[in-house]
């Protein structure tokens, strides 16, 4: 139990850090390239501790994202739930995959999430310029291998990976 709690606490702290990175002010040119920090961190935890982090935590995180971004409540949450659902279902396969393969899967998942958010924006009649809209997807994908290694180290140091993984 203590182990699970420690895992969960580490997870919570990294998600909070991801939120801070997500709202940190960046120069104008860089804003368009901001990686989707919260989704990436949630993906990592859904992959490594699927018994603790699942679709419900993803939904709550998504709602917080909606509040911080000023999007409709549920807009980011729905996308995040779908991404985490796929990760949750495939976590054993993904864990065995190489970092590059993981990154490719994540690329497509993030693409789906962005499309869902864009779709809702389109319905509301405020779809933005398309050319840079998918930049975060690309930067997030490129960032994944590094983020994975950092989170794994943090996880080992503060949370310890359970024996079964």
């Amino acid at each position: 139990m203590a182990l699970i709690n420690r895992n969960f606490r580490t997870g919570l702290l990294t998600v909070i850090a991801a939120f801070m990175l997500a709202i940190m002010p960046l120069p104008d040119w860089a804003v368009k390239f901001r990686p989707d920090w919260v989704t990436l961190v949630m993906i990592y935890w859904a992959m490594t501790i699927p018994d603790r982090i699942g679709v419900i935590s993803a939904w709550l995180a998504g709602l917080m994202l909606d509040v911080s971004y000023g999007t409709l409540l549920g807009q980011q949450a729905a996308g995040l739930v779908i991404v985490i659902y796929v990760i949750h279902m495939q976590h054993q396969r993904l864990r065995a995959a190489s970092l590059i393969q993981q990154a490719i899967v994540i690329f497509f998942l993030l693409l789906i999430k962005q499309l869902l958010v864009l779709w809702v924006d389109g319905i509301l009649g405020r779809a933005p310029d398309i050319w840079y809209y998918f930049m975060p997807t690309i930067t997030s994908t490129l960032l994944w291998p590094w983020l994975y290694l950092i989170l794994r180290d943090l996880h080992r140091k503060f949370g310890r990976i359970p024996a079964y993984s």
Binding site: I23, P25, K32, R126, P128
Partner: peptide
């Protein structure tokens, strides 16, 4: 000074 949705 926090960033929100970059498209809005």
């Amino acid at each position: 000074k926090v960033d929100v949705d970059p498209n809005r």
